[in-house]
């Protein structure tokens, strides 16, 4: 575990020092600017529209950071040949993948926490509030970033960094746009078609599970605990599966 931590920590430290990390500051100001600008014109405090857009914005920014920073890791280690002294250490390749994954989760969670804190600040000035729901939103956000980092780690075994980034963005948009549609097809079709769509539905990473936008915007009741635990379980299972597969493939990769 100390080895995994060492890799993740080294990665975060490096990213913070590189100018790359300034993107976080830019995002932060965009979010802050948007929220305060909107808030200024709302007499009664934060409106639903601002909550809706603010939440979407912060999720999207965190997603972007998770994708771009994680996608860079393996390719740049291989490209710059820093991977060789690393692999010469008493470390399995599974551990390398896991360490990089943890680094990606750490860096995007740090960013997400900052964005979320800003959002919370404005959220508290508005109408219906639920701290429990807000807490759930935070947990789901972190889980979402775990899923995204695991997906990116997995695909960085096969495709270049830019292809990976593009692919994950497309995947995200597709899943957000089509998972309801897919559920509809499964419900209304029969036989083999239903089974095939069912399998596809189960295999797809359900990034939409983590989206509490509507609930937070309209200040609905918090989710029941069993839902939260199910989503946590789903994330752990899905990430373990992806990372094991990624490790398995990386182990067989000729470097």
């Amino acid at each position: 575990m100390r080895a995994v931590w060492a890799i993740a920590y080294g990665m975060v430290k490096e990213l913070v020092r590189k100018k790359d990390f300034y993107v976080l500051v830019i995002f932060m100001f965009v979010l802050l600017g948007f929220l305060s600008y909107q808030n200024f014109f709302q007499v009664k405090g934060i409106s639903r529209y601002v909550r809706d857009f603010g939440y979407s914005l912060l999720m999207f920014f965190s997603f972007t950071i998770a994708v771009t920073f994680t996608a860079k890791q393996l390719p740049s280690e291989i490209e710059s040949k820093t991977i060789y002294p690393l692999l010469a250490k008493p470390l399995s390749r599974h551990m390398v993948i896991f360490g990089k994954f943890c680094g990606g989760v750490m860096i995007s969670t740090i960013s997400f926490t900052i964005f979320y804190a800003i959002f919370t600040g404005f959220y508290m000035t508005g109408g219906g509030k639920s701290l429990v729901l807000l807490g759930q939103g935070f947990i789901f956000g972190v889980l979402f970033l775990c899923m995204v980092s695991a997906l990116v780690m997995f695909f960085s075994n096969f495709i270049t960094m830019s292809a990976n980034v593009t692919f994950i963005f497309l995947l995200y948009l597709t899943i957000r746009g089509f998972s309801d549609f897919l559920r509809g097809i499964i419900l209304f079709s029969k036989g083999i078609v239903a089974t095939l769509y069912g399998i596809l539905y189960c295999l797809l990473p359900h990034l939409e599970f983590f989206d509490l936008r509507i609930r937070i915007t309209h200040a609905w009741d918090p989710l029941p605990m069993w839902v939260v635990f199910t989503v946590v379980g789903y994330t752990v299972l899905y990430c373990c599966m992806l990372l094991s597969l990624a490790g398995y493939i990386f182990e067989r990769k000729r470097l």
């Binding site: 080895a3 060492a6 020092r17 710059s80 040949k81 820093t82 060789y84 002294p85 010469a88 008493p90």
Partner: peptide
């Protein structure tokens, strides 16, 4: 590899770390 040391042909390390940080990282591994 616990008792093996390796110096690669091309010396490229994480350029945004210091030698001390690099050695700490490897030492932790």
């Amino acid at each position: 590899r616990q008792t093996v040391g390796y110096m690669p042909e091309i010396a490229n390390y994480y350029r945004y770390l210091t030698p001390v940080e690099l050695l700490i990282m490897y030492g932790n591994i």
